[in-house]
Design a protein around this nucleic acid. Structure first.
Ligand SMILES: [Mn+2]
Ligand SMILES: [Mn+2]
Ligand SMILES: [Zn+2]
Ligand SMILES: [Zn+2]
Lengths: 138, 138
DNA sequence: ATTTTTTTTGCAACGAAGTTGCGTTTATGT
DNA sequence: ACATAAACGCAACTTCGTTGCAAAAAAAAT
């Protein structure tokens, strides 16, 4: 695990530091997505708020994680499992938010269906978020 | 227009006040969705921030407007055109965010396709947001 | 292994965004 | 017109996110 984490950081041209190790470890060991405040709690505020912001920003830019839009103004972040590179994300899978346990999950096997837009509109990226009750809470 | 606005407010059991009139008018005369700050600007800050928050909250609860999820932590609100009632929204249409002009649009004619979720997951509501270039900006 | 250079971190200060309590004002129903 | 109920504006406060800068840590060079 330790080695894996360092390898991931290095292969993404990120210098390996305590904070980045810890936060990446959280993502790897957690099934769902994490919000900024989730991370602050799970690290027991061992790192400064600013460091967490900057780390997430760095991970995002390197294509290590992606954001999940929500209707309640709280960005969630999740690991990219596809071949995402810096700047070009390719996570075209559906996201699920459980109203029971609150967890946000990447449904990696469920791809977003293509749609026909009105004449004149050009799509660059499509997001699909499903709210409901998850497997575990049923 | 004036009469229409009052009718809408009354039929939704909202007492008609200056702020609510003005904000509802904005939604009716605007093609796209509005954020909180959009409203503050377009009303020339004539109403207190708190009043705008409470008005949007009231409109939401009555099923007059709905929110549109975004990945950048900025809630947009748009009029419900379907038969939404208090608590039960039914806006199952696609939303479009233009990266050029920044406007957020309800594609009322474009319905969200149904999807097959993994076994055990139950959907209550599905959101679909498309990013790209809109009709006008092309 | 040391030193130099570069990057990251923590702190402080700041600004924006959102919430709450409360007294005053405004709307509604009789 | 009056009583009651709802909404408003203001102030205070919390939470969230950003920026500049000096200290610390990591990476690169020697
Ligand atoms: Mn995902
Ligand atoms: Mn809509
Ligand atoms: Zn659940
Ligand atoms: Zn546009």
């Amino acid at each position: 695990m330790e080695a894996q984490i360092d390898t991931i950081l290095k292969s993404n041209h990120l210098s390996v530091t305590g904070g980045r190790r810890k936060i990446l470890e959280l993502f790897l060991s957690n099934p769902g997505a994490l919000s900024h405040s989730d991370i602050e709690k799970k690290t027991e505020e061992k790192f400064d708020r600013v460091t967490v912001y900057r780390t997430l920003q760095a991970f995002l830019e390197k294509g290590l994680i992606h954001t999940i839009p929500t209707a309640d103004n709280s960005i969630r972040y999740a690991l990219c499992k596809d071949n995402c590179s810096a700047g070009h994300h390719q996570d075209n899978h559906v996201h699920f938010i459980c109203s029971q346990c609150g967890s946000t999950l990447c449904l990696d096997e469920t791809t977003i269906p293509s749609i026909r837009l009105p004449k004149g509109f050009v799509a660059a990226r499509v997001e699909m978020v499903v709210n409901g009750v998850c497997k575990n809470c049923k």
